[in-house]
Design a protein around this nucleic acid. Structure first.
Lengths: 227, 227
DNA sequence: TAAATAGTGTCTCTAAGACATTATTTG
DNA sequence: CAAATAATGTCTTAGAGACACTATTTA
């Protein structure tokens, strides 16, 4: 029984997922293949499944309380060549900046892998059934992004509305109409202004932050383009 | 590691959940308390978690393919006095008619327990953390009922639109406006007429059945009363 | 002043809410 | 006909889509 994590962030205009490389040791399955981070429950240290997920998240990224929700359980006879196994998978969204990756025990290396636009995973086959799990995580993320504020948890503390809209568009791989987007975000009371602006080469943009980082906001309708 | 089930149906104008009674044997925790049905994975017979859930569902109710989805995993040190344990919980919706309950091994008795209107569970404390699990199941059900066709899976094969609307109202514990309800159901292509009517004392009602019992329909908006 | 991005305004459209009205049965 | 439930119609409203327009900066 293990707990695995699907950790997403937004980097260089792309959604990315954290992968670790399986150790290159005899008797280990999927040697040197990339996999989702995770590992066994420590029944001494972990009071429950969520605590176990938080511990592993902290070990990999140093972060204590990002957005975290349960994704689901995968279990069966064939997912691990060593026999019947079960994993409980959690799903995390991290701000893009200031994360220091740590490979940790039982991982040869660690990296961010881009989810290419429209793709349903990374460009390679992952260890175990992790390809399938990643697909489920992407499906959950994209589904919820239609009617929640989840993309805001992929951004740094302060962001402009254009950056937030861009995050939605990257996750959904489609354009969103600007006016409708801003009305929705404002009406929901999702963000509050901070007294700063982002200055690039053009008109500066107002910076905002989430009013409440502890829970997402649910919108009354989904985005849905006229066909 | 166990798999447990939250099995709902609609009976006598109430949402009901299937409970089993814990055996009255020494060394068994929660003797004679009521609990959600479930049990250990049989690594010989069960290929994966879903197969295990389907097997247990069939053992209890005789049904093979009702609506079934994963609810989540609960695991921790304290949920079972015997030590760290994990359960994967599935969530089923059954037609109300023609179910023959079977207590099966490790259960002294089995019964349907009503979810009283507006209540967040049955009126008694369940074994283990099953009270909490049932609350989560009700929350999931009520949440999804706002924008899916789930209540149709609680009804017998053929039903009238009034009965379907009643199922929504019972799950949500609130009235729904009739005209909007029917427009929504019709526009979604959720049901099809069968050439029969339900005759009671008044104007007979057209009978319908689901066009597709294999998957729920998602509506474009939630129900939401003007405050 | 041109280019670029930020931000707003106007009109339309979809689907739900409110509520009235008509339809069809039995007693 | 009255009573009861089934079924439909009309008007309003919230919030999204389309698209044009204005605002503010730098080069």
């Amino acid at each position: 029984m293990t707990v695995d994590l699907v950790i997403f962030t937004m980097q260089d205009e792309a959604l990315s997922v954290l992968l670790v490389q399986r150790p290159d040791m005899q008797d280990e399955p999927y040697r040197r293949a990339w996999a989702l981070p995770g590992g066994y429950i420590d029944v001494e240290r972990d009071g429950d499944l969520l605590a176990c997920a938080k511990r592993k998240l902290k070990e990999k990224t140093g972060l204590v309380s990002p957005y975290l929700e349960q994704l689901g359980g995968w279990g069966g006879r064939k997912r691990d060549p060593r026999g019947w196994s079960v994993t409980q998978v959690y799903f995390a969204l991290l701000p893009s900046a200031g994360i220091e990756l740590r490979a940790g025990a039982n991982a040869a290396a660690v990296r961010w892998a881009r989810i290419e636009d429209g793709a349903n995973g990374v460009g390679e086959r992952l260890a175990f059934d992790h390809t399938e799990i990643l697909e489920a995580a992407l499906e959950r993320l994209r589904g919820k992004v239609e009617y929640t504020s989840l993309p805001a948890f992929l951004l740094p503390e302060e962001f402009t509305l254009s950056e937030l809209q861009r995050a939605y568009e990257i996750v959904l791989s489609r354009a969103i109409e600007k006016s409708a987007f801003r009305t929705r975000v404002n009406d929901a009371g999702l963000v509050e202004k901070v007294p700063r602006q982002r200055r690039t080469g053009n008109r500066p943009a107002q910076l905002y932050r989430l009013k409440d980082r502890s829970a997402p906001v649910y919108f009354p309708r989904t985005f849905s383009p006229r066909s």
